[in-house]
């Protein structure tokens, strides 16, 4: 498979959230701020790359009948290793992300990529797939986080320096000073609303592209039209 296609799939065509609708738990729970979304996205990306490589390298040994338990064992082990080493050696970061890392195991996207890609492709391609699937996931989570944070609390990337180090303190912006906040956007409904609107935007862009590709200009029919 061509690298270009892998990259395009990860970022847009087969995007974990926008096309596969996988990993809904972190998508809803960890996007109340842009920093949270970014942090969870990056942590997932790291796990995804390593797990894809691990699964790909044992793909010839593992039989079809026992592949699911084997993949799950690999993924759970990697996540636990990441959890323990962050806790031991990057404790400040762990205090921010710690709660979420254990949740990565439950993210179907990881097993999904192992099943759909890594067990059929080489190690390099699988690493690339993991990286760009992860980045696509990160991009969506961060976008949802930005929308929810701006509308919900009037800031963007607050506490980014906790996550990325003091150099990134410049990211912390108050977009709307003196804003009282829209609580719903920080609470779970805000996640669903934002994701729904994002899906609608993707759909609209795709319809536009399809129409631009076809010579006959036909407006997509709406109900009753």
């Amino acid at each position: 498979m061509k690298a270009r296609e892998i990259i395009r799939n990860g970022l847009w065509d087969q995007n974990v959230v926008l096309a596969q609708i996988l990993g809904m738990c972190p998508t809803m729970a960890l996007t109340s701020s842009a920093s949270n979304g970014l942090g969870m996205g990056l942590a997932t990306t790291a796990v995804l790359v390593v797990s894809n490589m691990a699964v790909s390298s044992v793909r010839k040994v593992v039989t079809e009948q026992v592949r699911i338990p084997v993949f799950i064992a690999i993924i759970a082990t990697i996540v636990t290793l990441v959890d323990m080493s962050l806790n031991a050696w990057m404790h400040e970061l762990y205090k921010v992300l710690g709660l979420y890392i254990a949740l990565i195991v439950a993210n179907c996207a990881i097993l999904g990529r192992a099943e759909a890609f890594a067990c059929k492709n080489g190690v390099v391609d699988s690493a690339l797939d993991g990286l760009f699937m992860g980045l696509g996931f990160t991009a969506v989570l961060t976008t949802i986080g930005i929308v929810r944070e701006v509308v919900g609390s009037g800031t963007v990337f607050s506490q980014a320096s906790l996550l990325l180090g003091p150099h990134f303190a410049f990211l912390e912006t108050t977009v709307i000073p003196g804003y009282g906040g829209t609580l719903m956007m920080i609470l779970p409904p805000g996640g669903f609303l934002t994701l729904g609107l994002l899906l609608a935007v993707k759909k609209r862009i795709e319809i536009r592209q399809r129409n631009a590709g076809v010579a006959v200009v036909s407006v997509p029919s709406h109900c009753g039209a």
Binding site: V61, V62, T63, Q65, V66, P69, V70, A73, I74, A76, T77, T80, L81, M84, S85
Partner: peptide
Amino acid sequence: QGGLLALFSTVTAAALVIA
């Protein structure tokens, strides 16, 4: 199949213990 599962369980468990 059984051996494979046993092998992977052992390897992952060992990795966790060491870590």
